[in-house]
Amino acid sequence: MQLEELKTWWQEHESGQMDSEEIDRKMLHQVIRSRSKSALASIKRNIWLEIFLLVLPLWAMWTYVLWKEASIDVFFWAVGILTLVNISFYGIKLFRINHTPLMDPNIKQSLEKLVWTLGTYMKMYMFVGVILVPLGSAIAVYWGFFHAAAGDGKGFSDIEPWILLLLLGVMLLYGISSWLFFRWYVNKLYGQHYRELTNCLKELDVQPSA
């Protein structure tokens, strides 16, 4: 079979197709108003949802720090760092997503940008899941026990070793759970799509032998 035959076949098939309905203004307006189903639009919606979910606990923490706490201590700094890290994290994500044009000059460039963007997000999520969440939790636990001990008139060194070990165990468990959760979440959000796009890109990158 020659491809020319296939071309003729295709053109015959296409000429036999019924002409489709004309696109009118009403339809165009409807499409413009509708939610984009593109991968980038979905990612953007996820980012805003995460920001919304994050604002509440951060707001609660700042309310506590500013209205209940007279002194600027480790908790203040922890909340401050947590807030800054999150603002930077989501700021970078939104900036990248807003500057990732879907319509690049060719398919390969679009794939490269999308694969890079998704790959970066996946790494960032894992960084948050493996390092930031357990670290933030550890600071919160440390602070909580330090204050509880201070309230009882004790120093941190007065806390019994088995309690410290228990805390360490809880933090470790929390870290592992957090890592597992983020791994599942990242895979659910981007995993399959990322793998399929990567395969498409590999197909374009590999110079096949004739």
Partner: peptide, 28 residues
Amino acid sequence: NFQGKAKFSTWMYRIALNTAITGVRKSQ
């Protein structure tokens, strides 16, 4: 962004194929 350097149909193919391959989550 269509500047008329290419034919409109070529530009349309480019965007349509880009959207079909990269724009929509394939799992869906």
